[in-house]
C-alpha cells in the first residue's frame, strides 16, 4: 500500500532521510558490524587455521552435541507445543489464564535461574538427586540435564506461535470434519495440521535457534566437561577465556552461520505464511450465480 499519495502522512524529505539513516546506521553498528567482526576474527589466522580450529576434536564434539540436543528436543517441542496450543485455543476450562501465563514463564525467567532450579531438583542435594544417584543415572553435569533445561527454555516458542493462529482459525473446520465422520486423528492430520503447518514451522525454527544458542541455563547444568558436555556456546567461552581468539571466533562463526540459516528459513516461512493469509483475505469476486433453470 502506498502512502506517498497521502499528503497528511508525508514527512519532509530531509526528515525521512534522517530517520532512515538512523535506522540503517543503528543496524550496521549493532548487527552487521559484530557479525562481520566474528568472521574477520575467525579468519584472522587464515583459512587453514580456521579449518584447524574447527577440526579440533573438542570443537567437533561441541558442534555434534549442540546439533544433537537441538534435534533431540525438536519432537518434544512440537508435541508439547501443539498440545498446549490446542488446549488453550480450542477449549474453555478453569485455570486457562494460569496456563497461558505459565507458557510465558520460560521467557520471563533468567536462563541462569532455570539452570540453578534444575540443579536444585536433580543435583546431589536436590529432591530427586539421591534417587537418580542410587540408580546410577547422571542427570546434572551430563547430557540429560542439558536436554531438560533446553526443553524448558525452548518450550514456549511453538505454543506461542500456534495459540493466536489456532484461536483465529476457530473450531469450525474441526467441527465440520467431525460432523463428516472423521476420527480424531484423521481430523488432526487432514484439517488441523495443514492449517497450522507454517506457524508450526516458524515456531520450530525459533525454538531451534534458541536451543543451539542457549548459554546460561546449559552452562549451569553442563559442568563444562570438555569433549563431553560442552556445547558450541560453552566451547566459545572456554576458548575465549584461554585467549584462543581464532578458535573461539571460528566456533562463534559456526553459530553465526547457523543463525543466518535460521534467518533465511524464517524469512521463507514468513513469506509463505503471508502468501497464504493474503490468499485467504483476497477480495471476493462479485457474486455471479448462474441462471439456475
Amino acid at each position: 500500500m502506498s502512502t506517498s499519495s497521502r499528503l497528511a502522512n508525508s514527512e519532509p524529505r530531509w526528515l525521512r532521510r534522517v530517520l532512515i539513516g538512523t535506522g540503517l546506521g543503528f543496524l550496521f553498528l549493532f548487527l552487521a558490524l559484530p557479525l562481520l567482526a566474528v568472521f574477520a576474527e575467525a579468519f584472522n589466522g587464515g583459512w587453514s587455521a580456521y579449518i584447524e580450529a574447527l577440526k579440533h576434536p573438542e570443537a567437533l564434539s561441541a558442534i555434534g552435541l549442540t546439533l544433537f540436543i537441538a534435534v533431540f528436543v525438536l519432537p518434544f517441542n512440537i508435541l508439547a507445543g501443539i498440545a498446549a496450543a490446542w488446549t488453550i485455543a480450542k477449549f474453555d476450562f478453569r485455570g486457562k489464564s494460569l496456563l497461558i501465563t505459565l507458557i510465558d514463564l520460560p521467557f520471563a525467567v533468567s536462563p541462569v535461574v532455570v539452570g540453578l532450579v534444575f540443579l536444585l531438583i536433580f543435583g546431589a542435594q536436590g529432591a530427586f538427586g539421591p534417587w537418580f544417584a542410587a540408580h546410577d543415572i547422571k542427570v546434572v553435569f551430563a547430557l540429560p540435564g542439558m536436554i531438560i533445561v533446553t526443553l524448558f527454555i525452548t518450550f514456549s516458542f511453538v505454543a506461542r506461535e500456534l495459540i493466536p493462529l489456532m484461536q483465529a482459525q476457530g473450531r469450525d473446520e474441526e467441527e465440520a470434519a467431525i460432523s463428516l465422520g472423521a476420527s480424531g486423528w484423521k481430523m488432526f492430520f487432514r484439517v488441523t495440521l495443514p492449517n497450522i503447518k507454517w506457524g508450526l514451522l516458524y515456531g520450530v525454527i525459533l525454538a531451534n535457534a534458541r536451543a543451539m544458542g542457549e548459554f546460561g541455563a546449559v552452562s549451569v547444568v553442563s559442568g563444562h566437561i570438555r569433549g563431553e558436555t560442552n556445547t558450541l556456546p560453552l566451547h566459545v567461552e572456554i576458548l575465549y577465556n584461554e585467549y584462543n581468539a581464532v578458535g573461539a571466533f571460528a566456533a562463534a562463526s559456526v553459530l553465526a552461520l547457523l543463525a543466518l540459516v535460521t534467518l533465511v528459513a524464517k524469512t521463507i516461512v514468513e513469506w509463505q505464511m503471508r502468501k497464504e493469509t493474503e490468499m485467504l483475505d483476497a477480495a471476493l469476486p462479485p457474486e455471479a450465480v448462474r441462471n439456475q433453470e
Binding site: 473446520e173 467441527e175 460432523s179 463428516l180 484439517v191 495443514p194
Partner: peptide, 21 residues
C-alpha cells in the same frame, strides 16, 4: 451419540470449508 455417529449434515454460517483443500 458422538457427532460423527449421528449422520447429520451440518452447514456452518461461515462455511468452514477446508481452506487447504
Amino acid at each position: 451419540l458422538h457427532a460423527r455417529e449421528r449422520k447429520v449434515g451440518f452447514v456452518f454460517q461461515h462455511y468452514a470449508l477446508f481452506r487447504h483443500l
